[in-house]
Amino acid sequence: MAIFIQQLCNGLALGLVYALVAVGYSLVFGILRLINFSHGAVYAFGAHAAFFFVGLNFGPVPAIIAALVITGLLGVVIDKTALAPLRKKRSVPIAALVTTLGISNIIQNLLVVKFGSQRKPFPDFFNLGAFTLGGIQFSSRQFVMFGVSLVLLLLLLLVVNKTKIGLAMRATAQNAKAASLMGINVNSIITLTFLMGGASAAIAGGMVGGYYQVVYPGMGFMIGLKAFAASVLGGIGSLPGALVGGLLVGVIESIAALYIGSNYRDSMAFIILIVVLIVRPAGLFGKNEVVKV
């Protein structure tokens, strides 16, 4: 039972990080109807940026903030240099998909060139020690991670649902053409989306780096897929969906690791993904789209 509760907490904490990454997929998908394959690499970039700034003796919090800024900018650069020209040319959707795949390759392998492909130790900076509750030992890292993610996610939800910019984002997601006719600058909304996606991925990267105390260029691949599974499960394009989906994926895989074996932990996300896509492609919070002929 104690192990079960520990795993559950572990799953909830990781789940919220997945949600934080999933938000990046959902925001971009909501507006561009594009699955941004480069998002996992952007997350790895964020973790390495934090690693780099920690190495410069920035201290953990300033390092993560610096990483957040630079990764957010990376998101914007990706859109401006590679994706915006495709939109301008009205390329087929698959072109954008392949482009993000290429960007993912570029980022991940530039990280390999700069930092090497091996695992590098990351400071255990938000460990406030372990504590015992009801005879069960908990790590404070989980709680810090859970708390920070939750606050950020709620903040994002607030921005999207309660601010003028959020309204513009939702309008653009509904109908970009109409939004632009209403005077919304769709291009800057898209830029903002990539900025937010990149920044939240950087925070997630920094936290997971601290949680496992390790960063490496390939770290974004698996978590990218898990976060994607989470956003699909919740209903891609929906922020509350990303949150719920992330939590579910985190908990399911932790419980599966406990009962099926930790080797199969990583495959749970795929199984969830495939089952959801086949049974209910719109996800928990999504709406089915009607075929137009």
Binding site: L34, I35, P93, I94, L97, L225, F228, V232, G261, N263, Y264, D266, S267, F270, I271, L273, I274, L277, I278, P281
Partner: peptide, 28 residues
């Protein structure tokens, strides 16, 4: 078989997941 239900990017993701599942089975 998933092509019964899925199109475009969704199908692509499922194929990606398939490739990884194969590798995990081989490993485990």
């Amino acid at each position: 078989l998933p092509t019964l239900r899925l199109k475009g990017s969704y199908l692509t993701i499922v194929t990606l997941g398939f490739g990884e599942i194969v590798r995990m089975i081989l490993m485990n």
